[in-house]
Computed example of a mutant assay.
Amino acid sequence: MRHSILAMTLSVSAMLTGCATTQDEGVDGTASASAAAVLLAADGSSRGEAKVTEASDGLHIMVDARGLTPGMHAVHIHGTGSCTPPDFTSAGGHWNPGNRQHGRDNPAGMHMGDMPNMIAGADGSGQMEYVIPGARLNNGAMPMLDADGAAIVIHAQADDNKSDPAGNAGGRVACGVISGG
Results as ranks from 00 to 15, higher is better:
G58W: 00
A151M: 06
A36V: 00
T30C: 01
S11N: 05
M112L: 12
G113K: 01
A37D: 09
A166G: 01
T22V: 10
H60I: 13
A50C: 05
A50R: 06
H3A: 08
G121Q: 11
G176V: 08
G48Y: 05
I132L: 13
L10M: 14
V63K: 10
E25R: 13
H76W: 00
L68Y: 11
S179M: 11
G176Y: 07
V131P: 00
G167H: 05
D28C: 03
S34M: 10
S45Q: 09
G71V: 08
A35E: 01
A36D: 09
D43V: 01
T30G: 00
L6W: 08
S4K: 06
G29K: 02
P86I: 09
H94G: 11
W95E: 01
D159H: 10
G176K: 00
L59A: 08
A55I: 10
S34Y: 05
C175V: 11
T9K: 06
G48W: 04
V52E: 07
D123Q: 08
Q101E: 13
V52Y: 15
H111S: 02
G29R: 02
M115K: 06
D159W: 07
A20W: 05
G81Q: 03
D160Q: 03
N161F: 03
L40E: 00
H78S: 03
G134F: 07
M112Q: 14
H155W: 05
A31V: 15
T89F: 12
M72T: 15
T21W: 13
L16Q: 12
V153F: 01
V38I: 10
V177W: 07
P85A: 15
A156C: 04
S34F: 07
A158V: 04
D43M: 03
M8D: 13
A20M: 14
I119A: 10
N106E: 02
A122C: 00
M72N: 08
A35G: 09
G109N: 02
G180N: 03
A141R: 07
G167K: 06
G103Y: 00
L137M: 13
G58A: 08
S125H: 06
V38Q: 11
G181S: 14
H3M: 07
I61G: 00
A120C: 07
T17Y: 09
S163F: 01
S45V: 11
N106G: 01
T84N: 12
S56A: 15
D64Q: 14
A120V: 03
N161M: 13
G134A: 05
T89W: 08
A33P: 04
V38L: 11
P133D: 07
A91M: 04
R104W: 11
A74M: 13
I77P: 08
G18W: 09
G93E: 04
G126F: 05
P97G: 08
V63M: 09
S179E: 14
M8G: 11
A14W: 02
G29C: 06
T69S: 13
N161W: 02
P86H: 08
P133N: 07
D160W: 01
G176L: 09
G180S: 05
H60K: 10
A158Q: 12
L6T: 14
M15E: 12
G124C: 03
A135C: 02
Y130M: 04
S32L: 00
D123H: 03
N161Q: 15
G121D: 13
W95G: 00
R172N: 12
M15P: 00
P143V: 14
M144L: 15
N96L: 04
A169S: 15
A156D: 14
S163M: 02
Q23H: 08
A151Y: 04
G18F: 11
